[in-house]
């Protein structure tokens, strides 16, 4: 029994290493080479539209609601300590450092990541990728690469929009509803938020998350089993794996960026 468990564990480890390797090869093949600007730029724009613009609604709404909830919960607790003027600081720092990048990444993985995996899986199942190869067009450069760059560009922008809308939502709850002094709200926030430490670090975080989520989504789609069951499994795998990786990476990055201080 124990021997079985050990060998199963070993097999999982080997499979993991192999898939990491093939994922690396796929990314390498997609990114290396001269970019053919004229041909690939329209593809990039189209993918930016699909991944970025069409995620705007869910990101902005979520940002608004989360900002408002933090504002409300924060106010309820802070008012007991007569510290409600620090509400702005609470909302801004929690969004900038953690919730902005992480929640955006999770939402993006669920919405855009699963769509990417399903789309590429379907292209594989209907042999569109094979026919691209037979037409002497590299599917990695044509299909994978524009989606990768679009995701990496779109997600940090979405995170910034999320954070901005969230902070505004927090100010709606704090200032307009609960009556925290507007001047103190914004000035305490400004005093405590630093450009390089908070905003830039949050941006770097969302950049790392973007690369991970998009890479996982593209890899799962490209290497899925080309049946309808295989595609659905791959889509689920994308959402689960991407979410776990984002949360784990968040801990590592937080420890490196904020924990050492």
């Amino acid at each position: 029994m124990i021997v079985n468990m050990i060998s199963a564990f070993g097999r999982t480890a080997i499979t993991f290493c192999r898939s990491l390797g093939s994922a690396g090869f796929m990314l390498w093949g997609a990114l290396i080479g001269k970019p053919q600007i004229r041909k690939h730029f329209p593809l990039l724009i189209k993918q930016l539209h699909v991944l970025g613009v069409q995620s705007l609604l869910i990101i902005m709404l979520s940002g608004l609601f989360i900002g408002m909830v933090i504002g409300l919960q924060g106010y309820v607790v802070l008012v007991d300590f007569a510290a409600e003027t620090s509400l702005g600081q609470l909302v801004a720092l929690s969004l900038l450092r953690e919730l902005g990048p992480v929640v955006t990444a999770l939402l993006f993985a669920g919405r855009a990541g699963s769509a990417l995996t399903a789309e590429i899986g379907l292209m594989k199942a209907t042999e569109q990728l094979s026919s691209l190869e037979m037409m002497a067009v590299d599917p990695l450069r044509r299909v994978i690469s524009p989606r990768f760059w679009a995701g990496v560009i779109a997600m940090p922008i979405l995170a910034i929009i999320f954070t901005a809308v969230g902070i505004w939502g927090g100010s709606l709850v704090g200032v307009d509803w609960k009556g925290v002094d507007a001047g103190s709200f914004w000035s305490v926030m400004q005093n405590s938020v630093s450009w390089s430490y908070d905003i830039l670090n949050g941006f770097i975080k969302s950049l790392c998350f973007a690369v991970s989520v998009v890479w996982i989504a593209l890899f799962n789609g490209y290497h899925c089993i080309p049946t309808s069951e295989g595609i659905s499994k791959a889509t689920t795998k994308t959402v689960v794996n991407a979410s776990l990786v984002v949360l784990g990476l968040d801990f590592v990055l937080t420890a490196v960026m904020f924990g050492a201080g």
């Binding site: 209907t126 042999e127 569109q128 094979s130 026919s131 190869e133 037979m134 037409m135 002497a136």
Partner: peptide, 19 residues
Amino acid sequence: LYRARNRMGMLFQSGALFT
């Protein structure tokens, strides 16, 4: 290989048109 493939064409079972 890509040059050789330019001289070949393949018709897949499902057509495989780009949707």
